[in-house]
Amino acid sequence: MIRIFAVCNGTLLEKLGTGVSPTYTRIHFLLKELAEYTDVTIDAVSYDISPGGGIPRRVADNVRKTLAALRSAYRIRRDRPWVYFAYPHSMTTVQNRLLFSFCSFIGARTILDLHDTLEQTGAVGDGKEQLSRRFEAHSLKSASMIVALNQPMWDHVSRIYGLNGTPVVIAPNAFEDIFMHLYPEPYRAVNGRCNVCYIGALTRNRGIDLLVEACTALHAANPDIMLHLYGPYGPGLGQELRDRIEHSDCIVRRELPRESIPATLKSMDLLVMPYNPEEPYLNLSSPTKLYEYIGTTIPILCTKCESLMEIGSNGGIVYVDYSTEAFVAAIEDLLKNPGKREDLSQRLFAVRENHTWREQAARVRRGLLEYQSGRDGERSEEEPGSTIR
């Protein structure tokens, strides 16, 4: 039996809600799929968060978080489960950092689900670190098991912090079942429609400037080409580029609630993942959006980030250099050749079941069972990347 106590607001396990981040998405669906197994139980403490702002609200929320942490500590000590922390999300409150230290003190086994590291702040954030590098090192070295998004990311982190020998399970992000229902068949090209789409925050190093340049140039020659940007503005995207996006006759930018995105993509012809591979963090990232792209089977254009190259190894993703010229050439070629787009979709359709949350939960469960049984974590050829390394 695998008993897991999740250090997060238990309401997140019950319902994902609207307008949520990729972090919440991963926590919700990964733990939800784990709970589907008859030999896995998931527990957490739920508490309310006050609406609005102001000092009284913050005080009330901190009281609730403290009470939740005390209840969590009691259950952890009583039940001795695996204790799940999403890093860095779970560590952004002092109450949860103390819970992590409490787990180390009593010898409770901890799972650190490594979503991001402090490098993200420098790559796409505002430069303000919520945690110290010392605490990040402490968390990684103290965890009983780490769940990492991909092998290149783990190799990089383990090299920086000297984590050789730490048990790790590789479990990338994924897409939820709604994509299977909305996209039961491979993509079919529609004559005269040329919609290019990017989902996610519009920040520096995400290739937004290159995408705008490329689609603007292509639109001048083919007015059917439109660029759809679904996401908010973020750090590092200059006002000049923002104004250009908002006043362009070939760019549509909207912010959508997360639950609307799967259906909205049905009118798209090319989904783009334009991250800058020269930025170390982005070169090793595992963005949820790419897996949701796969869930639609709509053709994908992606830059040559190391962590993403293997995903399209069956030829289902077109990889390009990080340059405006490369984007123009690739987008033009794909939009002019509907047969090529449909072939890409067939290849994605053939492998998309490997990228569901169900598959990632299976990997984590197998890793936990191996740890509990004392196996040495040898990987079999039939289950690559699914067990302890």
Rank of each mutant, 00 (worst) to 15 (best):
V20R: 08
V45G: 01
A60Q: 07
V59I: 15
I42W: 00
T18Q: 13
R78A: 05
S72V: 01
S46I: 02
L34Y: 05
V83C: 11
S72W: 00
I49G: 14
G54A: 08
A69T: 02
V63K: 09
A69M: 05
T23G: 15
I55D: 12
R78V: 01
A35Q: 06
A86S: 15
R71I: 00
R75A: 05
D39A: 13
G52P: 12
G19K: 03
A60N: 13
K32Y: 09
E33K: 08
E33C: 06
E14D: 15
R78H: 05
L12Y: 06
R26H: 11
L30D: 09
V63P: 12
Y84R: 02
E33V: 04
R26L: 00
L30G: 07
C8T: 08
L70M: 15
S50W: 05
D61G: 13
E14S: 15
K15D: 13
D43S: 08
A69R: 02
R58V: 08
V59Q: 11
A86P: 09
D79P: 12
V59T: 10
Y74H: 14
N9P: 11
K32L: 05
K65A: 15
P81C: 02
F85N: 07
V40W: 02
A44P: 10
T41M: 02
P22V: 04
P88S: 14
I27A: 12
N9R: 05
C8L: 11
T11Y: 15
S72T: 01
V20H: 08
R64H: 09
G10F: 01
L31S: 05
D48I: 05
Y47R: 02
C8S: 09
L30E: 10
P88K: 08
S21H: 13
Y47T: 05
K15T: 15
Y84K: 00
R77Q: 03
Y47P: 07
L31H: 12
L70T: 07
K15R: 15
E36G: 08
P81E: 00
Y87P: 09
I27G: 14
T11N: 14
N9C: 05
N9W: 06
R26S: 11
K32S: 14
H28Y: 09
I42D: 13
N9D: 14
A35R: 00
N62V: 01
Y37W: 10
P22D: 13
P56R: 04
I55T: 14
G52M: 02
K32C: 03
Y47M: 06
D79M: 04
A68T: 06
K65I: 11
L67S: 14
V83S: 04
T25Q: 14
R77W: 11
Y37N: 07
C8K: 01
T66R: 10
A73Q: 00
V59E: 09
Y24E: 12
H89W: 07
T66Q: 04
T41W: 05
R26Y: 04
G52Y: 10
F85G: 09
G10P: 12
V7D: 03
P22Y: 03
A68R: 03
G53F: 05
G17R: 07
D39Q: 11
L13D: 02
S72M: 00
L12F: 01
Y87L: 13
A73C: 06
R78Y: 03
R64I: 03
I49E: 12
N62A: 10
T66S: 13
R80M: 09
